[in-house]
Design a protein around this nucleic acid. Structure first.
Lengths: 109, 109
DNA sequence: AGCGTATATAACCTTTTTGTTATATAGTGG
DNA sequence: CCACTATATAACAAAAAGGTTATATACGCT
């Protein structure tokens, strides 16, 4: 076993993080691939500081990991998190990203 | 298929409900069996109105169903909810209820 | 050095959440 | 009818969440 079973406190904190549509959508995207902050900034209609804070919340909860590469900061799912399997199931229930919602910013950043 | 795949909005609303430790614990108990309001009132250290509101939040989100029997109001999980499988997985990850946390109020109510 | 891009943090404000107390409603049993 | 129990709702206060703007920091480029 990779990780210990989470308790109610830990798990409800995990769910609280997923309880925001912006964060859930970000996590869904990260399941497909790592993303840098500026990609998320383009993706949503909220300010860059708001994006940064959502990412920090997820990082502090242990749900995502960050990787710094020069001026870019990349975020990805933390597969070691004890709640990771639940996250994966949730993302799978959401199904494929609709084409028009897939990110076309291959060039940007 | 029993229910339609939920979208990000619906699913994050579902997670927001699970994002409170009291509610998550209540759901965990309901997975074992139906419970009436007064049982939850005994179980937690918050007021009866607070318990009632938590139950209403879960009912309005479609996560639980209620059954009225004379002066008692019983709540149970809604197995038809599209997010029900995720809830079950989460509860299973939590593991067995510790003995000292199991409810001994067989007689009350 | 000076500029532009990427990102984080601080300060602030508004909305939502969650608890409390007070009170209303409904069923049960004298 | 009255009292007691079970439960819901309203009104209120405190705390948390989430957005914004302003600003600081770091890197790459000319």
């Amino acid at each position: 076993m990779i990780s210990t079973a989470p308790g109610v406190e830990k798990m409800s904190a995990f769910f609280k993080v997923l309880g925001d549509p912006t964060r859930l959508e970000m996590l869904r995207r990260m399941y497909t691939s790592e993303h840098c902050v500026c990609e998320f900034v383009e993706m949503f209609q909220i300010s860059q500081p708001a994006i940064s804070r959502h990412l920090r919340v997820m990082k502090q909860a242990g749900i995502v990991l960050e990787r710094r590469d020069r001026q870019w900061n990349y975020f990805r799912l933390n597969e070691q998190d004890p709640c990771y399997p639940i996250l994966v199931q949730a993302i799978k229930e959401l199904g494929e990203l609709p084409i028009h919602e897939q990110n076309l910013l291959k060039i940007k950043c």
